[in-house]
């Protein structure tokens, strides 16, 4: 209880020096840490039954039924070329990048953290970093170096369109 009170106190103190802050949800894929702005995150799930789909790229694991709502499930690890997530242990981050929700399959969910806008560093410019467009920036929190994902750019427009064109999306 005392500890709780202390942390509440700290929270209020932090809150006192008003700087624009953003809140992120950090998770791990392989040995890398990524984060998404909580604004686009709806919730975190354990992996339910996955209904696989025919003729889709490997990173599209299939569909899941979230309380009657049918969502496509994307394996972030597969998408990043790090191999597939173990579907017995992984977690699903349900995100809302645009109009329709999307399940993102990750290895573990780490924490919810706040950072000041100034602490976010731009993603490194590298000759071969053409594929790093989906990164918004990099931030270090404690031991972890989080790569901040741009929720809307995880998929190329073509891929997104291809997914939306799937029959399951037709009803929406």
């Amino acid at each position: 209880m005392a500890q709780f009170a202390t942390s509440l106190f700290h929270f209020k103190k932090e809150h006192a020096d008003e700087a624009p802050e953003r809140t992120f949800l950090g998770f791990a894929v392989g040995d890398q840490s990524y984060a998404l702005d909580v604004a686009v995150v709806r919730e975190i799930l354990r992996i339910p039954r996955i209904y696989s789909l025919p003729k889709v790229p490997a990173f599209v694991k299939g569909l899941i039924d979230l309380r009657g709502e049918i969502l496509p499930l994307m394996d972030l690890k597969e998408r990043l070329g790090l191999g597939g997530v173990d579907t017995k242990r992984g977690r699903i981050v349900v995100m809302l990048p645009g109009a329709s929700p999307l399940g993102l399959l990750v290895d573990t969910v780490l924490e919810v953290f706040r950072v000041k806008a100034g602490e976010i560093k731009p993603s490194p410019e590298m000759p071969a970093s053409g594929n790093l467009e989906f990164l918004e920036g990099i931030v270090k929190v404690g031991e972890n170096l989080y790569m901040l994902l741009k929720a809307g750019e995880l998929l190329t427009p073509q891929e997104l369109k291809a997914l939306v064109r799937q029959p399951w999306a037709a009803g929406r």
Partner: peptide, 17 residues
């Protein structure tokens, strides 16, 4: 405990939102 952990994370997300 795992479930609680998950719930806590979800609560944190909702709180942040």
């Amino acid at each position: 405990m795992e479930q609680t952990h998950l719930l806590a994370l979800n609560a944190a997300i909702i709180a942040a939102q």
